[in-house]
Write a protein that binds this DNA or RNA. Structure first.
Lengths: 278, 278
DNA sequence: CGGATGATTGAGAAGTCTCAACCGTGGTGG
DNA sequence: CCACCACGGTTGAGACTTCTCAATCATCCG
């Protein structure tokens, strides 16, 4: 259907850029790509060949320290960003320096898939924790999408998921009070962490500060702090030492009016699915 | 996971479904479809054949009265909704009945493109004004996307635009005060109306009530009312008899911190582009 | 030990909401 | 043709949520 002779699939990763022993790097990189693949396979099915093509994506590892920007708003890049570990956030910056986090991305999420079809953005990306990243050239992703229509569809579907989450966030920020907002985002984080195999919805690491949380739900750090204490006292969940712990998922989702439909996840658990494909 | 049944390539549009006088229907329908095509062509280029295919989309016209829901949240449909005239909103419903509008769609916008790749949703659609709609079966759009990869890419791109607007709305609602929120959404509406050929950014019809506006920016109707009066007094814009009138676009965008980048529009005006394609 | 970052607390200010009433207009039924 | 009703817009007053500012504390790290 399409021919793109310019692309060599299955190319080996770039030379190391000077951190770590090579053997470990390669294995870590591969694991990040396979997490990404697993994320895609959550919602789309791909043939063996298509999966291989994704795993063979050319890429370049890098690290970012907490609170450093990866892409500043308006910047033009030629690379998409895959999170290998840590938490990355997309944000909208206000003139006075205030920020609104509009999405967060965890291990296995590709932050910039949209840049394949739209090469410029109005937002920025920042690291909420120390992060390991894989930079993947847009051209690689574009070739993939064009050479394998199923992958194109899958990427489109991921864009729709993105939009669906964003829409829910608009509702969250626009029409809920502080307690519910915070509760809702914790619910979302719980499910996504669980689907990514990084804990359970009742207990998982939450790699961001209270200020980040404030920027995500459109509140002040001070008010977030009081709200967290309130939620803690009311026994909805506690957040301490970066660990979220939820005594009753039922009760928390009830408070948050949390309905996971918008995450567009399959019924079966992540664990079941991952073992099915590996 | 969402997999699609096998596709028949090059399928011809179905027989008519027997509504209305054919001749007039066809002409009105055609105009709505060509508005949609024009919208797509703003950001993607398509071949003659691909354009024809879009114009040949099977569809069924319908009308909805103001404040009636088109799709209730969670409902399953087999049809996408193209706005022929009027304003349609996507909304997130809260348990207490409150609503947050997450996007609005004007003439030429397809509200449900995402449903091609994700057949269920968590949101609803409602008419903010009396509307003319075209229902387009998902299967039609899916076939188009699969038969014409460039159309698939274009649709994906539209999904990204959707997400980009949504992200901006999160920032708008989460980090701006009432004046700026309202100002910002008016700016967006102005640009989009102008691009759709429905007025100029300085003067256009705004087919929604103050309550709708409140639901869009996450405020109360009462507060919207006072904010509008305030903006009016400060000479940023006035909204009366459903007409928005902006004395100084410069000043309004300055207040709103409005940067149209996120709309992912081309540099040239809608008018220029439309005349180029027709 | 000093400095940086993040969490916590207090008190007053500001922005927005709630409730409740009233007005104007257009449509509708008698 | 009029009376009435429904809807959208407008106003006032008080309540409540959230913000701002400023200080203190805890922890980690060089």
């Amino acid at each position: 259907m399409f021919s793109h002779p310019s692309v060599v699939l299955g190319r080996v990763p770039f030379e190391d850029r000077g951190f770590g022993r090579k053997r470990r790097m390669v294995s870590k990189q591969h694991s990040a790509l396979s997490h990404f693949l697993a994320r895609v396979l959550l919602r789309s099915s791909l043939s063996e060949e298509e999966r291989e093509a994704i795993l063979a994506l050319r890429h370049q590892p890098s690290k970012v320290r907490s609170n450093h920007d990866i892409i500043t708003p308006g910047e033009h890049t030629e690379e998409a960003t895959l999170v290998a570990h840590g938490v990355v956030a997309r944000f909208d910056g206000m003139r006075d320096g205030a920020r609104q986090i509009t999405s967060f991305y965890i291990e296995g999420d590709m932050c910039d898939l949209h840049s394949v079809v739209v090469p410029f953005t109005g937002w920025g990306l920042t690291a909420l924790s120390d992060c390991g990243l894989l930079r993947v050239p847009h051209s690689e992703l574009r070739d993939l999408a064009e050479n394998f229509p199923a992958i194109g569809l899958a990427f489109w579907r991921e864009a729709v998921v993105d939009a669906s989450i964003l829409a829910k966030w608009v509702g969250n920020v626009g029409r809920r009070n502080a307690r519910k907002r915070v509760a809702h985002i914790i619910c979302e984080a719980g499910i996504r962490m669980e689907m990514a195999g990084l804990g359970t919805r009742e207990r998982f690491r939450f790699e961001m500060t209270q200020s980040h949380l404030a920027d995500a739900v459109g509140l002040t750090p001070v008010h977030i702090n009081r709200t967290l204490q309130d939620l803690r006292r009311s026994n909805f969940f506690s957040l301490g030492a970066k660990i979220v712990s939820v005594p009753s998922w039922e009760r928390l989702t009830e408070l948050a009016e949390f309905d996971p439909t918008y995450l567009l996840l399959p019924k079966q658990s992540a664990k079941a699915r991952r073992s099915a494909i590996s």
